[in-house]
Simulated assay, not measured.
Amino acid sequence: MQFLQPILLWGLLGISIPILIHLWQGKKGQVIHWAAMHWLSEQESSVAKGVRLENFLVLLLRILMLILLVLLLSQLYFSSTNTIAEPRIFHLFQPDMQLAEEYKFELQQALENEEEVYWADENLTPIESLEDLEEGGKVFDLQAALDKISPDATSLNLYLSNSVNALKSDFYLSPLKPNLFLGSAELLKSGTQVISIDGVKALEIGENGLLDSISDALGEASVINLDKALFTYFLGEITDSERVFVQASLDAITEVYGFDFVEEESMEDATLIFTANPPKVDTLDKIYFVSDTFSFAERSNLISLSDQLDFEHSELVQSGKLPEVILERFLDFSGVEKKDVPLSRGQLENRFLVESERAQEKRGNLNLLLLGLFTVCFAAERFLANRQGI
């Protein structure tokens, strides 16, 4: 038995109210006039005082009504002691053969204990034996896998590589706090990438992962050609102050890196869309920056910004990081590979937002019974009180 709103139990202090009223009425007494009263002496005609025994039942009913009301508001929840729920332990593996081999022993132990083991893909594919590790073709989709976790889960173990490129989204919504198991494999070092616009080499991704000018000795470099059509943008349903700061951010990117962004008059002709309303049509050839909204299950080309993009509301604008965010998201959308760096356990833990406690989602399962008892007590109290004239 538990109370889902235990703070409301302080309402039990209200029991003292009917007791004090009852004692006060008994102390005050009641004058009863009758025909031969004037024949009595002054001592014999004193007012009768004290608590009458026939009023005790009314007092008890009023106290019981207050108790039932407090229990009803406190959401009394009773769980049967005869049925003890068995723990359900979930294991989610990132589809990575090297990671699975590294935690092969933990995987074998989980299978022997008949715990639930899955690939962290969009279908939550089960792993039934070690032979399943040899199967490939699984697409890593952590949020989709977390959404399919049973609400009865008591423990969640996540096996992830400590790679910033593997975790695309900034945050993940998890049904409960996960236990993280990070891979220790070395990150793959990608070769030099060169960004060209319409066949003209412009910038390269330096060793520090930042955009830099073209060097003389590139060696073996992968060239990523970006069409000029990618550098078109459209300012949709946003405020005038947002337009000023978005335009200023694009101008800053153009000044530093030489990217020439061109404003279009219609959304159909632009690639970068700045708006306050999420698009209804799921088109993957555009990237949407949606301000003043927030969403966990984002599409890869839908960037939700929780504040308006002006100086009064947005921390990105106040700190001057809005151009950096726009450029980073734009390059990721354009296919420019981000430099891979390891993530610490603390950085990963901060990316998981845990849902509200399950207990708060419960509803008192004795509400109907308490309401019925309250109705019966109220009817009995009114009947006795009217009968006794109190």
Rank of each mutant, 00 (worst) to 15 (best):
M1I: 13
F3I: 08
Q5I: 14
P6C: 14
I7L: 08
L9K: 13
L12C: 11
Q25I: 09
G29C: 09
Q30S: 04
M37F: 12
H38P: 03
Q43L: 14
E44F: 09
A48W: 15
G50I: 13
L53H: 08
N55H: 12
V58T: 02
L61W: 13
L61N: 11
S74A: 10
Q75W: 08
L76F: 00
L76A: 11
Y77E: 06
I84N: 08
I84S: 07
I89S: 12
H91S: 15
F93V: 14
P95H: 02
Q98Y: 06
F105D: 07
F105H: 06
L111G: 05
N113A: 15
V117R: 05
L130F: 11
D132P: 14
V139N: 09
F140T: 07
L142H: 01
A145C: 02
I149L: 02
S155K: 06
S163Q: 05
N165Q: 05
L173D: 07
P175Y: 04
L180S: 03
L180M: 09
A185G: 04
E186C: 03
L188N: 01
L188E: 03
S190E: 06
I197P: 03
K201G: 03
G206S: 14
N208D: 14
L211C: 01
L211F: 02
I214H: 04
A217T: 12
V223M: 05
D227K: 03
A229K: 08
I238C: 07
S241V: 07
V246E: 04
Q247H: 11
A252Y: 14
E255F: 13
F259M: 10
D269S: 14
T275E: 12
N277A: 00
T283I: 09
I287D: 00
S291I: 10
R299K: 03
L305N: 02
L305A: 08
D310W: 03
F311H: 04
E315C: 05
S319P: 01
G320P: 13
I326D: 01
G346Y: 08
N350L: 03
F352G: 00
Q360N: 09
Q360E: 12
G364H: 07
G364T: 11
G364A: 08
C377E: 02
A379K: 02
N386G: 05
R387D: 04
R387K: 11
Q388F: 15
G389R: 10
